[in-house]
């Protein structure tokens, strides 16, 4: 990797993160109150985030197929895609626990990062707990 290549990767990473974060904030994903009312089917249900997520998946579906017409990504030698296929216990148990945490705090990792600078005490305690959770899961699943 040349120095210039490394700088371009950093630039692409930063630009993508910035775009992702602005998207999260403008759509309301980084506001836990809005996320929780999206999850509250029995209350004052706010379905708008379903369109945000579906829209992002559709844009990605089209853009991925466009990207994969190339033999390699612009800044790396090859595409690195997940290869696991089996629907196993860690996948389902992990997703279930993730959902419970999401339903309690209204935060998933991306929105928490993009809201960190807003400095709410809830975000400031969520983040270290998130890291501890990541670390603890590694004890269960060494290759993760």
């Amino acid at each position: 990797m040349t120095l210039a290549g490394g700088g371009l990767r950093l630039t692409a990473g930063f630009a993508a993160g910035l775009l992702f974060g602005v998207g999260l904030i403008l759509s309301g994903m980084s506001d836990p109150a809005k996320v929780l009312s999206f999850l509250d089917l029995a209350g004052n249900w706010d379905p708008s985030l379903a369109f945000v997520m579906a829209g992002a998946a559709v844009v990605s579906f089209v853009g991925y197929r466009f990207s994969w017409r190339r033999t390699r990504p612009v800044l790396f030698d090859k595409f690195e895609l997940p290869t696991a296929r089996s629907i196993d216990r860690p996948l389902v148990v992990g997703a279930a626990l993730f959902g419970i945490g999401w339903g309690i705090g209204g935060y998933c990792p991306g929105p928490a990062w993009s809201a960190l600078g807003l400095g709410d005490p809830g975000t400031l305690v969520f983040m270290p707990a998130l890291m501890l959770g990541f670390w603890a899961a590694g004890l269960m699943r060494p290759r993760g």
């Binding site: 626990l97 945490g101 969520f126």
Partner: peptide, 8 residues
């Protein structure tokens, strides 16, 4: 919430 989200 943070622990569950990270772990899960």
């Amino acid at each position: 919430a943070g622990l569950l989200v990270g772990f899960g």
